[in-house]
Design a protein around this nucleic acid. Structure first.
Length: 455
DNA sequence: ATCGGCTCGCGCAA
DNA sequence: TGCGCGAAGCCGAT
């Protein structure tokens, strides 16, 4: 049974007689998905069929070919897994609100369930659709272990104010998932065969750019990465994760980003594993507190990608240093191609371009240098997010937004001592990186990446 | 190698 | 009202 605190009503209508529709968006998985489970429970209760719809809108934000490929592969697996449960899967392309609204009308849907996403444009689409249909529509937080609106009812000041709230409720929500079985009442209408080539070519993106191959998309692959992480990298995670020259990270962020795997599943398996407490705690802190804090920020601060979303002290210090002289200034293209004067920065950028994933520690250094080498903080946020959202497989999600805002605008951070350009925003530099890891070794790994083969 | 100061404000103890 | 301490640091003193 789905905890009803996970379910958030989006309009005041009541459920009508027709089938229950789950509009899948952020959570691209069949296993361990509370939104899908909620829809199925309601269908079985009311003795009506259940339908899953994916409304594919034209490419938005700064998405790229690598995102398109990951998404299509994920959805093909979803189609297979739904077929095994005899649940119909509709794949429709066009304007999101129009597709959902007309689908509800054409199939005489009695109730709509969505999954939760705090980001634009999906958020506004969801709100518009809820007003356009005339049946009950709700969203289910199938992403966060503690539902976003249950963890806190406001934008949290920092991790230390958010942590106790999550800790207090984690036991109630870190529960096991029921096994999903074939619905009581089967859908008897017509379900069009999905033309996957048409799906793949619907979103316009540049396929001359490289598509990283190291990670395999989808739920099965994600669970395999999880098993491998627990078996070979969880022990020692606390000390190795911040060294970019080591392979000490989980590699799970793209799978969590696309909803291929559930954070609850990950947390339960890590908790059950045989590994030192210090390593489990370090991983769970990132998986739960910091990841869910990112959704908290994006959900409660609607202008989350602008300087106006930052703390008052941060806005003040950014304004005071707006006209500080910048020693270096680069364009988006110079950043994208890794053409700065800083070999570590360039190597981090090329890691992101070639592998679709920049090491977590370097993401902070990388973003802070963009603040240092652009005319103003808002330009830095725009460029950092555009690069993040184009090249990172886990881009276009709340973690990327919050990470960039932490680095450039002090979101969830404290004030530090005054210096040029940064003001009181925490500063990071090359010397600090050299103190922590072998910078030269990291730089050497990406020194052979050729510009002509990449762009 | 290690320590304290930098600097702001939340949240809790009192 | 006072006080401890924080999303992963830097820097200079010892």
């Amino acid at each position: 049974m789905v905890d009803q605190r996970r379910v958030f009503p989006l309009n005041q209508y009541t459920a009508a007689a027709g089938p229950v529709l789950y509009v899948m968006a952020r959570e691209q998985r069949v296993k361990d998905n509370w939104a899908l489970i909620a829809a199925l429970e309601r269908a079985n209760e009311r003795k009506v069929p259940m339908i899953v719809l994916f409304a594919l809108a034209p490419m938005f934000n700064h998405g790229s070919a690598r995102h398109n490929d990951w998404m299509v592969a994920s959805l093909q697996e979803v189609a297979t897994d739904l077929a095994a449960l005899q649940i119909p899967f509709f794949m429709m392309m066009g304007d999101w609100v129009e597709v959902v609204t007309s689908f509800v009308r054409n199939h005489a849907v009695g109730e709509v369930v969505c999954d939760f996403n705090p980001l634009e444009p999906v958020r506004t689409w969801r709100e518009k659709a809820a007003q356009s249909v005339s049946v009950a529509m709700s969203m289910v937080d199938a992403r966060n272990i503690v539902p976003c609106w249950e963890a806190s009812d406001k934008a949290e000041f920092a991790a230390y104010t958010f942590r106790p709230r999550v800790t207090k409720k984690i036991k109630e929500f870190l529960t096991s998932y029921p096994t999903v079985s074939v619905p009581d009442v089967l859908f008897t209408g017509e379900v069009p065969t999905i033309d996957w080539e048409a799906v793949r070519s619907f979103r316009k993106c540049d396929y001359t750019e490289p598509v990283p191959h190291r990670l395999v998309p989808g739920s099965k692959a994600g669970l395999a990465v999880l098993a491998e992480f627990i078996a070979s990298r969880l022990e020692g995670y606390a000390t190795r994760r911040n060294d970019p020259t080591e392979f000490g990270v989980s590699d799970l962020s793209p799978y969590l980003r696309w909803g291929n795997i559930s954070a609850t599943t990950v947390a339960r398996e890590v908790e059950a594993a045989q590994a030192p407490r210090i390593d489990k705690d370090a991983f769970l802190e990132e998986l739960i507190v910091r990841r869910e804090l990112a959704d908290n920020y994006c959900y409660y601060v609607r202008n989350h990608a602008t300087v106006s979303g930052a703390h008052a002290w941060a806005q003040k210090t950014i304004a005071e240093h707006a006209s500080d002289a910048r020693q270096y200034s680069y364009t988006y293209e110079e950043f994208a191609h890794g053409k700065t004067h800083d070999d570590l920065w360039n190597a981090a950028q090329l890691q992101m371009v070639t592998e679709g994933k920049m090491h977590g520690f370097l993401r902070m250094y990388w973003a802070k240098k963009i603040l240092e080498w652009t005319p103003d903080a808002q330009t830095a946020i725009d460029i950092a997010l555009r690069l993040n959202d184009h090249y990172q497989l886990d881009g276009r999600d709340s973690n990327g937004v919050t990470g960039v805002m932490w680095s450039i605008a002090g979101v969830h951070d404290r004030a530090w001592n005054e210096r040029p350009i940064f003001g009181k925003i925490r500063y990071m530099n090359y010397a600090g990186c050299k103190r922590k890891f072998d910078v030269a070794l990291f730089v050497r790994r990406y020194s052979t990446v050729s510009d002509t083969t990449l762009f």
